[in-house]
């Protein structure tokens, strides 16, 4: 399945030089590939394996995820605000499908 309903939490506003926390969540089953259905057939692995955050076209954070990450993967990281800009968050699943969310940081 494709990641859906991305949710991003940023501070309401930030100044240049501030260190902010960036919280991200996306809806996804993160099927491990180690489970069986009720008839005993293996359920194929289906996970978000990569998360990439860029700010103003510069990559600021990346995560490679395995099946040990919980369903609806939540990831937070820190960033020093280099100036005004927009985040691009991307979640890539096992089939290569990319879910993208754009969020502008309110720099005052």
């Amino acid at each position: 399945m494709t990641a859906t309903k991305p949710r991003i939490k940023l501070p309401e506003s930030a100044k240049i030089g501030d260190v902010i926390e960036v919280k991200t969540l996306v809806t996804h089953v993160m099927e491990t590939g180690h489970r069986k259905d009720k008839d005993g057939n293996p359920i194929a692995r289906d996970i978000i394996n990569t998360f990439i955050a860029t700010f103003g076209d510069k990559e600021v954070f990346r995560a490679e995820l395995g099946p040990g990450i919980s369903a609806n993967p939540y990831i937070s990281f820190q960033m020093r605000v280099p100036g005004p800009g927009t985040f691009e968050f991307a979640w890539i699943d096992d089939s290569g499908t990319k879910t993208v969310e754009l969020t502008t940081l309110n720099v005052i």
Binding site: I69, I75, S76, M79, R80
Partner: peptide, 14 residues
């Protein structure tokens, strides 16, 4: 990278 300023990450694991 240095862009992070603070090396702290959060997630949820199985």
């Amino acid at each position: 990278s240095p862009a992070n300023a603070v090396a702290r990450v959060q997630s949820r694991m199985r």
